[in-house]
């Protein structure tokens, strides 16, 4: 593969940072790592570079995935969790960033509960920021690995009918996937209850499908989102039962269409948005997404770290 290919941006804050060519470059690179990775061997792409895993919000899979990706590229990866940091002593976010920066860290993988934090940090550092999820705003590496999974499964993303189901309103995964799938010219529709998907403001310029049966009938792919239990506590939804009945995916519904593909960013609430009996199905790509996640993150770290 052509090693000279570069992304059009020196960071990754949201899906819209990447154009079609950029996405192709990332996919090719991820493919390369997937084909060439051997157990016990490491690539030297990030040798000598220190990558900070700056997770200001709890995360398991994304943090592990980035950490493994960085290590496979020979980076020095340091972890940073807000619960054990000086943030809890009242240090401001920017001071924390500058402290880590003064120690020679050049790349930052950032997860934060507030929307816009990666952008805020990127504007105040010379280092490279990779957004690992910010508030309700964006989770671009998730969108990349989702599209990569579709690309590997179908051979192309263009023209695929993808319906995103569930809590669109509070989901950074939904936002990033909508942008990326549109860049890749998939046909995207949305399905979710009225309080979790604003109908009066046509925000995402996507058609809305009113219930899960119609969604399944229309789609090649359903991307099911995690429903946070807080939604019930805050009164945005009346009950889990009703959500499950109208927007949850049952095995019976899923089995109606043989080639239907299901994805979910995890962690899954079985019994709420998804019937646990779906999990072993070969067209349920949840574990594949996780596996692809590491290669996508290796690709990004390698591409964004190449000029450091």
């Amino acid at each position: 593969m052509n090693e000279l290919k570069k992304l059009s941006v020196p960071y990754l804050l949201e899906s819209a940072d990447l154009n079609r060519d950029d996405i192709k470059i990332v996919f090719d690179k991820a493919d390369f790592f997937m084909q060439n990775y051997k157990r016990g061997e490491k690539f030297s792409d990030l040798k000598g570079i220190t990558v900070a895993m700056a997770f200001f919000e709890p995360s398991t899979r994304t943090k592990l995935s980035f950490d493994i990706a960085a290590k496979r590229l020979s980076a020095d990866s340091i972890s940073f969790a807000s619960s054990t940091s000086s943030i809890t002593k009242g240090e401001s976010l920017i001071d924390t960033l500058h402290t880590i920066e003064a120690m020679g860290v050049e790349m930052y993988v950032v997860r934060h509960k507030n929307s816009g934090v990666p952008k805020f940090l990127q504007e105040n550092t010379k280092g490279v920021i990779l957004n690992a999820g910010d508030g309700k705003h964006a989770h671009p590496t998730q969108a990349l690995l989702d599209s990569f999974t579709l690309y590997k499964h179908f051979g192309a993303v263009k023209g695929l009918k993808v319906c995103i189901v569930g809590d669109i309103m509070h989901s950074r995964v939904a936002r990033s996937n909508i942008d990326m799938l549109k860049t890749l010219e998939a046909d995207v529709k949305l399905c979710g209850p009225g309080t979790l998907l604003p109908r009066n403001i046509n925000v995402w310029d996507c058609d809305i499908i009113e219930n899960i049966n119609d969604a399944i009938e229309w789609a090649d792919v359903i991307l099911v989102l995690r429903l946070q239990r807080e939604r019930m506590e805050s009164g945005i939804l009346p009950s889990i039962e009703e959500f499950n009945r109208f927007y949850g995916v049952s095995l019976e519904q899923f089995s109606k269409k043989q080639d239907l593909v299901l994805m979910h960013p995890g962690p899954v609430n079985y019994g709420i948005e998804l019937d646990y009996r779906i999990a072993p199905n070969k067209n349920c790509l949840i574990q594949t997404q996780v596996t692809h996640g590491v290669f996508i993150r290796m690709a990004l770290l390698s591409l964004l770290g190449s000029d450091l």
């Binding site: 929307s115 816009g116 508030g135 309700k136 705003h137 964006a138 309103m169 936002r175 403001i201």
Partner: peptide, 14 residues
């Protein structure tokens, strides 16, 4: 709240 409620606030996740 952080900003006006609009298409933009939904997009920005605010």
């Amino acid at each position: 709240f952080t900003m006006n409620e609009s298409a933009l606030s939904y997009k920005l996740g605010l």
